[in-house]
Amino acid sequence: MNRKYWLFIIFFLAGIYACQKEVTDTIPAPFVGFQKPTNFPEPVYHFNTNTVTKDGFELGRKLFYETMLSANNTISCGSCHIQTAAFTHHGHTVSHGIFDRMGTRNSPPIMNLAWNSSFMWDGGIADLDLQAVAPITNHLEMDETMPNVLNKLRSSPQYPALFKKAYGSEDITTTAFLKSLSQFMAMCVSSNSKYDSVMRHQGNATFTADELAGRELVKQKCGNCHQEPLFTDNSFRNNGLAISMVNDEGRYLVTQNSADRYRFKVPSLRNLAYTAPYMHDGRLLTLSAVLDHYTTQVQNTPNLDPLLQQNSTLGIPLTAEEKTRITAFLNTLNDRSFLFDKRLSD
């Protein structure tokens, strides 16, 4: 009798334990807000005025994929910033927006924006919170007005409750709308490439001999502009592209300072495998075409960067072997996990 009694107790406790285990398994992992990768510098985005919360971030994600942001409710931010292309418009030299109207510039990645001091190829926008207004109201992109967007959200069956959940009020304000989008965009952090693993001494990640040599070459020959670990210095430079029919004058359009004519923002070198084509207008379709540009195609146009005209030669001299090594290193900057991070998906 005693033995039976004990057995019963043991089974009962085991049952409770199993139940508990099951319960803990179904509790989702607690929401982790913005986290700075240990090998990254401090972000420049003002998180002190916009703390990332679970509800704010999820609302921002829903808005990012919301087609009501466009005039005829057909396209969302995600239409031209596709996650599987590291949030670019893969395969499009310049992006087509609403009614397939063509823009003049290549859709840049929504990636590590918390470290960007300005936005757009010409840096016309200095605050991530104000960024979304531009594509929403651009005639070639979403061609909508901000009042219309907010009114559509206000009259939708779901959004007032989602704003209340995130901000404690059903009022859909400009601030709440834009800050939610910022929360989502700031959370699009790509920091899990092989390069990052090596830098963080994770597991036994090491560079191959070619990658290591490539890294030294990139530091020497590209690193003034494409600085580690974000692989941009956020500056504006003329990299010697031939002036096209569009005659896009880049940063000059913003500052109207003639010294800024044909300068564009230095893009990051991360995730190049997923973000072709390259350059502000997507004119170069492959990475090898980009390297060829720097070795033999640089044009002496107004404000050409001094780094591209050293020793009275245009461009950056590179041998075939050097190009192979550089390419090997650049491939260590691809972060496949960013493309499939479910938190960032529609």
Binding site: T49, M146, P147
Partner: peptide, 24 residues
């Protein structure tokens, strides 16, 4: 900060057509 842009400065309100979005 965008939260300080209310009333006639609200880019989704009175300021919607008094604002350059491409060059904030």
């Amino acid at each position: 900060d965008v939260s300080q842009r209310t009333g006639v400065l609200d880019v989704s309100g009175a300021a919607a057509d008094m604002y350059w979005s491409w060059n904030s």
